[in-house]
Nucleic acid binder design. Sequence first.
DNA 1: ATGAAAGCGCTAACAG
DNA 2: CTGTTAGCGCTTTCAT
Lengths: 342, 342
Amino acid sequence: MIKKSRTVTRDEVARAAGVSSATVSYVVNNGPRPVANETRKKVLDAIQQLGYKPNAMARNLRLQHSTTIGLIVPDIHNPYFAEVARGVEQMASENGLTMVLCHSDYKLEGELHYVEVLQTERSAGVIWFPATNSAEPALRIADYGMPLVVLDRVVPGVRAPAVVADNYLGGYLAARHLIDLGHRVIGCITRPTELYHSTERVRGFRQALNDKHIEMNAALLVNGGFRLDDGCDAAKKLIAASPRPTAIFAYNDFMAIGALRAAFELGLKVPDDLAIVGFDDIPQAAFTCPALTTISQPKLEMGRNGVALLIEEMEEPSLSSNPNPPLAVKLIVRESTGSLSH
Amino acid sequence: MIKKSRTVTRDEVARAAGVSSATVSYVVNNGPRPVANETRKKVLDAIQQLGYKPNAMARNLRLQHSTTIGLIVPDIHNPYFAEVARGVEQMASENGLTMVLCHSDYKLEGELHYVEVLQTERSAGVIWFPATNSAEPALRIADYGMPLVVLDRVVPGVRAPAVVADNYLGGYLAARHLIDLGHRVIGCITRPTELYHSTERVRGFRQALNDKHIEMNAALLVNGGFRLDDGCDAAKKLIAASPRPTAIFAYNDFMAIGALRAAFELGLKVPDDLAIVGFDDIPQAAFTCPALTTISQPKLEMGRNGVALLIEEMEEPSLSSNPNPPLAVKLIVRESTGSLSH
DNA sequence: ATGAAAGCGCTAACAG
DNA sequence: CTGTTAGCGCTTTCAT
């Protein structure tokens, strides 16, 4: 291979091969017109010789489409998002697309920033984990005619293909599980802001208690937050209640892990002194904390559009209290209507 | 805002505003030539009216550069990489760049695939976590004249700016810590493949034992792997050795968490029955597993080039056995020589 | 202070 | 089977 300081263009390849630039195109793209075998070889040699790489920017400009999709998540540092990002990237890659990772940092402002960027880049589509209750990002994307898939949440006013868990059922099962174990005083860590998925989880949880005629006083419901520390603090508040809860349900498992830490710091054994159940946003949590019981993502619906998403292995929601492989949330991005890559 | 089905171009804006397309450019880019205030207003209005967004593909083609950087990591699912991705993305965003997330999946093949893609996209630069000992990816990148920064590892034959931890020191400190606690029989989980950073950690570890004239028989050294399960298995092997080690050092904390699980499954209390120290690739581990002792990333060197990286808060390597905020590895991407964004 | 026009690298008609 | 060329949307050098 020859060292090239400047980037080599298709015209140079054509000249080196003694053919026209169109011909080079045809061999690079394997079409749309056939090329004589001998000619093809000359071109291939020249390409090799010069170390030519096609310029995607020029190609995409000409083709009037881009090969990137945007994934907007609050924070990749949350293993749940990381897991999804992994799946999305893989499928993107298999389809010749490239994934731009966008952090909203849990803020609407961040989402809007990236919507703007992705529009500017003429992204082939966007996959969005809403961070707030605002429909504005979706509206702008739709307005611009970009394919959109919403993940994990239902946002009021958004009419777009979505993939969401049955959060209500998950919460219901969690409570049911604890009740069956004999628990009667159960604390609950809720989310500070009103967000569909978490309120649904708590709603399901309360319904299960209700069905069994188990009362919940106000002291058994405390606001968590988003971080482990918040979960830890919330759990400590719960543990201080009287009668002391023998179990805690957390709206997500970041909170659950926080609660685990609280138990640890207060010298309570889990699950003997205190059972903890978290909604499994983070499949990994079940791995790292064997003492923790988690609810795997329950049944998901599938949405389709320019980008279609498919959740595999979507059977019954399951409870796992052991480190056995929890349900891996696998996302698969596929072309469907064809509006993705034309 | 007006619904647009087709994407609106700059020429349409120009026509709507009754000016030339050049003028539109000048107001969009705030230069390079001044525009009369009144004209500017007309243009701005037209842009607003039509919902015009500049086309980044066209712009970049013309400018002969792209605004994306590539981040090549083995697997974002590993929280350590997630953390770095977070930092890189943030800095990229602040500099008007966009980050493409590339998974090598721990394979050279994956790395080469993405190097190809990034070259094709004429990426502004790439940040690379080597997955193997092969220098090929770096060679190809350099060959193509792309700015490159290597993270976390030193790969034989690669001469590029890099940011690497003092792994030897970390391993040394880990052993020292255990020895000071009175441990004399210490197991060690090593990496199956020869990779600089992990062998360095083990080397430091062994040196510390050596300095204290503590012997290690072969049964105290076992190969781990990459996954939690591997760490768990390895730890079980160690625990079966006689005399049974009272402590275990793991070359990374995925392995350490696996060891924690092994202890859990075998009914050993941590750290009373078995102390576990892991090298802290994963800052989060200290959060999720309070029983675990971790070594935070020790001193890092700074490399600079088209992309420069800076590690903040790089003081002495530290041991933490509590869930206090571990050293957050913050990466900052900055322009330096200017070859990044011209 | 603004307009006209060339050209970035590529694709795909239109011509042989 | 292959060459020529218009044009994707933008920036910037010429002009005026």
